[in-house]
């Protein structure tokens, strides 16, 4: 608005203002209705639920903020939350580094079969997460899977994806396989936005490929990298499919509170504790939003 010349600005309180705002409301209403139904209503309902307690004996009672007080001292919740934070700290940097290298390689134009690589890397993202987890779950099996064949070939237990201390790494491998292509695409599209003149100018100045990468390409993808990081943080905190599927194969290694989402699921669907499950989900949501927001703030500040 501020860019408009003063002459065309409508008089305060004039007829035009009223008409514009009515028309605007008409345009916005369908969105607002959908937004209220699919975003606000579930959140509000979860908040409402979290104020009660469900009991097999005595039914449902209002307990105020008791559930929140309980979550903050619940060792099972924190056990799961710390596990996904560890997962986040290790898996996300590795995944994004691979995605970045892949995006730079494809963008360099020096790769034969560029399209094949791009589609090949992206393809795992098109495989539903549950299917991917089942597929890897079989491959990890020492008895019937690829792991067994490799160990036979090596003559000793080369790989033990289902050993207790390797399990989180095994899950990280599945998640990385699934999402490298997706993140590569985000970064690659950012690279595509760099005007070709920039490269021409750099070439005239005698910059080699590594200088171009360092001084043009990396700064160009920084914004996209922040977005990819935020998505990955959210994804890590919501870790569910992969451990839940693997639990069927190695039941004792993955507890019912392995990740906060699995914990909430168990509470709700096995434990008849819908309200407490809602509380866990809300607290985890707030933590996720907080961390994602901090990362975004930091990323954007560097950007400017």
């Amino acid at each position: 608005m501020s860019a408009l010349p003063p002459a065309t600005r409508p008089r305060p309180g004039g007829r035009l203002t009223a008409r514009v705002s009515r028309a605007g409301a008409g345009f916005v209403t369908p969105f607002l209705i959908a937004f209220a139904l699919v975003f606000i209503a579930p959140l509000a309902y979860s908040l409402y639920l979290s104020l009660f307690r469900n009991q097999l004996v005595g039914g449902t009672q209002f307990v105020g903020l008791d559930n929140y007080a309980a979550v903050f001292v619940d060792p099972k919740f924190w056990d799961g939350a710390l596990r996904v934070m560890l997962f986040l700290a290790v898996q996300v940097p590795i995944m994004l580094a691979i995605a970045l290298v892949a995006a730079l390689a494809i963008d360099s134009g020096r790769l034969h079969g560029r399209r094949l690589f791009r589609i090949g890397l992206f393809l795992p993202y098109a495989v539903p997460g549950v299917v991917a987890a089942m597929m890897w779950g079989f491959m990890y099996s020492d008895r019937i899977g690829l792991t067994g064949s490799l160990n036979d070939l090596a003559g000793f237990d080369l790989l033990a994806p289902y050993a207790k201390h390797w399990l989180l790494v095994s899950i990280g491998n599945i998640v990385t396989w699934e999402f490298v292509g997706y993140n590569m695409l985000i970064l690659y599209s950012a690279l595509k936005n760099v005007p070709t003149e920039t490269y021409e100018a750099a070439a005239i100045d005698g910059a080699d490929q590594f200088r171009i990468v360092r001084h043009i390409k990396l700064p160009a993808v920084r914004g996209a990298l922040v977005i990819a990081t935020v998505f990955s943080i959210i994804g890590s905190f919501q870790l569910f499919n992969e451990p839940q599927i693997l639990k069927g194969l190695v039941p004792n290694l993955i507890s019912t509170s392995y990740t906060p989402n699995i914990y909430a699921y168990t509470l709700s669907f096995q434990g008849n504790q819908v309200s407490y499950a809602a509380t866990v989900a809300i607290v985890m949501g707030v933590i996720t939003a907080g961390i994602a927001y901090l990362v975004q703030l930091r990323g954007m500040r560097r950007d400017s």
């Binding site: 097999l56 039941p251 004792n252 290694l253 019912t256 509170s257 168990t266 096995q270 434990g271 008849n272």
Partner: peptide, 21 residues
């Protein structure tokens, strides 16, 4: 009265004996 939940958390507790933990 909550056997299905109890069975659900069996692996978390007794199940650890199968791992030798």
């Amino acid at each position: 009265p909550w056997q299905s939940y109890a069975n659900g958390i069996f692996a978390d507790t007794v199940g650890q004996a199968w791992l030798g933990e």
